[in-house]
Simulated scan of single mutants.
Amino acid sequence: MLAVAIVEDDKPIAQLISLWLEPYGYKCHCFESSEAFLASDWQSRGISLLLVDWQLPGISGIQLTKQLVSEPDCPAIIFVTSFGRADDVAQALHLGADDFVTKPVNKSVLLARIRAVMRRRGKDLKALNPGLEVTLAPSSLEVVIRNGGRCRLSPSQYRTLEFLLRHEGQVVNRAALSEAIWGESEPGQQGRALDLLISRLRVKLEGLPDNPMSIVSHYGLGYACYRALPAAAASVNSDR
Rank of each mutant, 00 (worst) to 15 (best):
E184A: 15
L221M: 11
E162H: 14
I13H: 04
A97F: 11
Q157T: 03
R152D: 00
N129R: 14
Y226A: 08
S238D: 09
F79E: 02
D9A: 10
K204W: 03
F31W: 04
V172F: 10
A97N: 02
P209C: 04
Q67M: 07
A228K: 13
S108H: 12
I17K: 03
Q157R: 05
I13E: 10
T81N: 05
A36N: 12
M213E: 04
N173M: 08
V52T: 15
R119S: 12
L177N: 08
V143G: 06
S235L: 14
T65S: 10
A234H: 06
P209N: 02
G96F: 05
Q15W: 01
D124M: 09
E184W: 05
H218W: 12
E32C: 12
K66H: 09
A76K: 09
C74I: 01
N129A: 07
D124R: 13
S70M: 09
E186I: 09
F31Y: 15
E179W: 01
K27C: 13
S214M: 03
M1Q: 05
T135Q: 12
S214D: 09
K103A: 04
L50T: 07
V109M: 09
L177I: 01
L201R: 00
G220E: 03
P212W: 00
K66S: 11
S34H: 01
L128M: 14
L194S: 05
N147L: 09
T102E: 11
I6F: 08
P212N: 04
R115W: 03
A39S: 14
I114D: 06
K126V: 12
G169C: 07
H94S: 14
V7R: 00
A14E: 06
V101N: 05
S235R: 11
G58S: 06
A176H: 05
C151R: 02
C151Y: 00
V172I: 14
V89A: 11
Q157K: 06
L136R: 00
R152T: 15
L132K: 02
F31G: 07
L196V: 13
G188V: 02
L132C: 11
G207P: 00
D41G: 14
K11W: 06
S108I: 01
A76T: 02
A14M: 03
L153C: 07
L136F: 00
S108R: 06
L111Q: 13
E206M: 10
L125K: 11
G46H: 11
Q170D: 13
A127S: 14
V172H: 11
S34V: 04
V7N: 04
T102Q: 12
Y226C: 12
Y219V: 13
N147A: 14
L177E: 08
Y226F: 15
P72D: 06
L161K: 03
G183I: 10
W54D: 03
R120V: 02
V7P: 09
L64S: 05
S154M: 02
I47W: 08
V101I: 12
P130M: 01
S60C: 04
